[in-house]
Design a protein around this nucleic acid. Structure first.
Ligand SMILES: [Mn+2]
Ligand SMILES: [Mn+2]
Ligand SMILES: [Zn+2]
Ligand SMILES: [Zn+2]
Lengths: 124, 124
DNA sequence: TTATAAAGGCGACATCGTCGCATTACTTAG
DNA sequence: CTAAGTAATGCGACGATGTCGCCTTTATAA
């Protein structure tokens, strides 16, 4: 299963790089120049997640948002940082703040999904 | 808008009290004795959330889970504790571990949604 | 250039949560 | 106790989301 380079991959990655935020499929589709099928965008995004290029966040709206892995922990496959979703501008960004928690004996944590919702600095 | 006492309300609250976990609409519908419409269950749950009886958690599957407010923040605005979802038994529970974070200047946090996913002690 | 298989387009599907509207039933005033 | 007022419910429908199957297209290497 070797990856191939396609215009779609490149376009999606460019959008996410330029924005610097976590974006949903529909936001990417709206922002992207070329016309890409919805299912294809999801497949591209999920492939990037599998390859450790992106990571996925599920917000309170139940939607999936995808962001570049900048300094994410690759060895543990965890992205243990907080995310912030502004309810005004609707953008989601990765916060530098790390997630720290304690769990009961015998529990095994495999993934972390932490989203704070509110108003960002530019919107307040 | 005064609340009324109905068999539906009571049944839903009983289910959630007995389980002691956070439950989704479909799980409640499956567990409940009487037959209640899907939309009605959601309306009951959302009303309970408005009244501060329940709180809502969105898991990585994008679904909403509802749990009793036991010792939640008295303002009923924030429920700043972690939640754990076992990928084996699919149950979600409220953890005692509080959510602590630092946020950039000018940001205002209004809600917290933190879900850890993995395997619980009974399933491991 | 050609064979191989990864990637994309398209349609379909299941799920989830909400809404509008007509009906039911809880509450309370009388 | 009865009846009016209105909260709550049932039902159908809807839009949004994410995935899958199948066939076609295309990137890549032999
Ligand atoms: Mn992130
Ligand atoms: Mn909780
Ligand atoms: Zn904002
Ligand atoms: Zn379990």
């Amino acid at each position: 299963m070797k990856r191939r380079n396609t215009p779609t991959k490149e376009a999606v990655l460019n959008i996410l790089t330029e924005s610097g935020k976590a974006m949903s499929q529909d936001a990417i589709e709206r922002k992207i120049a070329i016309d890409i099928n919805r299912a294809t965008i999801y497949r591209v995004l999920n492939r990037f997640c599998d390859d450790g290029v992106l990571h996925k966040v599920v917000a309170e709206d139940g939607k999936q948002y995808f962001a570049l892995c900048n300094g994410c922990d690759e060895t543990h496959q965890k992205h243990q940082h907080f995310h912030f979703k502004c309810k005004v501008c609707e953008t989601i960004e990765c916060l530098p703040s790390e997630v720290n928690f304690s769990i009961p004996e015998g529990y095994l944590v495999e993934n972390v999904n932490c989203v704070l919702t509110g108003v960002c600095d530019t919107c307040s």
